[in-house]
Amino acid sequence: MDHLLHLDRTLDELDPPRWTSPAADATDLMRKVHALRHVRLREFGPADLRVLVSQQVALPYVLPLAVRLLLEEPLLDASFYPGDLLLTAVRAPASAWSLLPDLNAVLRAVIAALPDAAVADLPRGGAEELARFVTRPETLR
């Protein structure tokens, strides 16, 4: 299955029900997430994907987009530091990755191929998180 078939559609179209407007007292983060649900998938940048994945919004549609970027540049700096999108992706729930086993395998291979020196520059615990993702038992992938 091609996970990138819907690039001209929005998350509100693909991931029902459509969200109502954020509450008046919503945080800036929640306003950002609500706004991103109205953006066409092809227009998402790395920072947008990091936000959506970290908030676990429409992961079957968002994770494939993140993985596509990570295949080109695994330690991409999406907002805060090199590798932030990668660490956000591996923190996605195992249940989301179980829906995307082919992408899970591809991302695990990309992570396994990273040089130790590159991974050493990740924030504290980052290298361990990547190692856990790569070696997670099949039933949890």
Results as ranks from 00 to 15, higher is better:
L99F: 02
E128R: 08
E73K: 07
D121K: 15
D77E: 15
A118L: 06
F80A: 10
P115C: 03
E129L: 13
A105K: 10
P137C: 06
V90I: 11
W97N: 03
V106L: 11
P93Q: 15
A117G: 01
R108F: 04
L75N: 03
E128G: 02
P74E: 13
A96P: 10
P137K: 08
A113R: 12
L76W: 12
A109D: 15
R91T: 13
L75Q: 09
P137A: 11
S95Q: 13
D116P: 07
L76F: 10
D77Y: 03
L103W: 08
A89I: 11
P82K: 07
L100M: 13
R124S: 13
P115T: 00
S95C: 01
P123W: 14
L103C: 00
L99Q: 14
P137W: 12
P82L: 10
L107K: 08
A109W: 09
L87A: 06
L114P: 02
L86Q: 06
P115Y: 01
F133N: 02
L100E: 07
E128T: 05
R132A: 14
G125P: 01
P101A: 08
A127K: 08
L122P: 00
G83M: 08
L103P: 00
L103M: 05
P101T: 09
P93E: 15
E128M: 00
I111Q: 05
A127V: 13
P74G: 11
D102Q: 13
A94R: 04
A109G: 14
